[in-house]
Amino acid sequence: MPQHIYYSFIRLPLVIRTLLIALMVIFLFGGLIHIIEPSSFPTFFDGIWWAVVTASTVGFGDYYPKSTAGRIVGIALIFTGAGFLSTYFISLAAAAVTRQNDFLEGKIEYRGQNHIVVIGWNERSREIVNTLGGDGMNHSIALIDETLKSNPVPHNNVHFIQGRSNKDDVLVKANIFDAKKVIITADQNKDELHADMNSILTLLTIKGLNRDVQCIVEILTSEQAANAKRAGADEIIQTNVLTSFVMINSISSQELVTSFLDLLGQLDKRKLTFQPASEEVENKTFAELSADLMKDGILLLGVKRGEETLVNPPQPFKILQQDQLIVILG
């Protein structure tokens, strides 16, 4: 039994062990001085109080030993208790600094819920993090990257996890089980095909741990988009297709591209989203519903019906209850 207690004790963190030893020393000497000099230390608590202020080198002087035996106890307490208390506070400070460094270096697991996991650090993810963590949004974010050595944006709502995103233990550190959404950006250090394969492997690992979490995946090559869909991607962003669209249209019409980029800048301050069609709007035409929504400052762009997305559908077009409305909220 004593051996079991000893092994349990040495497994405790250094700070806890040092504190327990310091407390035992204080209680031992506090009780001993009360026994030796009951006239100077009438109660056990008086002895404890004297032991604390003596070991901490404060020395108020309200209680002090008068006999030779009592002073010998005081000397022994100074040599032992002061050392243990100093060691405790030094260990406490060192533990605090170590934990802070571990937090900045991405070694501490995230314990929050309903957060957004962003995978990969590049200019796209920088913009995502700055926007999601900016004024008015303040989403909690867990950022995963294996190339960074420390948190690139040490805001209060950005928790950095260092490691490979396709490893279970790294995703568990990011608390993937309670995440609301995952954004997987393409690895800028790999060629396009290998970056897509890495993104799909990460997606498969995430879905294996949490099948229900919504995953938005950046895909660079068109042939890998189908594989990402099979792997469980809820949304696929083909950035090269979007870039090609802008560049091709810039050849024929500079004004169109400028307007398109201005539109993206405007949307950055607003919210483009889907809204389910309610029973009240069923059988209304697209034009009628668009006019009604405009009164509330909502712009109706189109309708998603099943797998088909219709932007500004041809009139007359009636809304069905199972439709999803594509709107811009003011």
Rank of each mutant, 00 (worst) to 15 (best):
I236P: 03
L19V: 04
R305T: 15
R270E: 13
F286G: 07
L267P: 04
S250L: 14
N175S: 07
F27N: 00
T87H: 03
E218F: 06
E223V: 05
I90T: 14
I161T: 14
L19F: 09
S140K: 11
H194W: 07
F89K: 02
T98F: 01
I141S: 10
V53H: 13
A93I: 07
G134V: 10
A76L: 14
P276I: 05
H139W: 11
P276W: 09
S278Y: 07
M197H: 04
L261K: 15
F260V: 13
L12E: 08
L143R: 11
R164Y: 09
E218S: 04
G120C: 12
T54N: 08
A287L: 13
G208W: 03
A96H: 08
Y7G: 00
M137H: 11
R99D: 05
W121Q: 11
I108K: 04
H4W: 08
L320I: 12
S140Y: 11
V58P: 00
G47C: 03
F160W: 07
L201K: 11
T273W: 09
K190C: 00
S150K: 14
N151T: 05
G106L: 01
I26G: 03
I216M: 07
D268F: 07
I33N: 01
I75N: 04
A225G: 13
P2A: 07
T68K: 03
N249R: 15
Q254A: 11
T221C: 12
M294S: 12
P42N: 08
R270V: 14
N198F: 05
I144Y: 09
M247I: 09
S91H: 02
G297M: 04
H194T: 03
S250E: 11
W49Y: 13
Y7R: 10
A291Q: 12
G112F: 03
P154C: 04
L220I: 12
L14W: 04
F79G: 01
V311L: 15
L85S: 02
G59S: 06
Q315M: 14
P276V: 08
N114D: 15
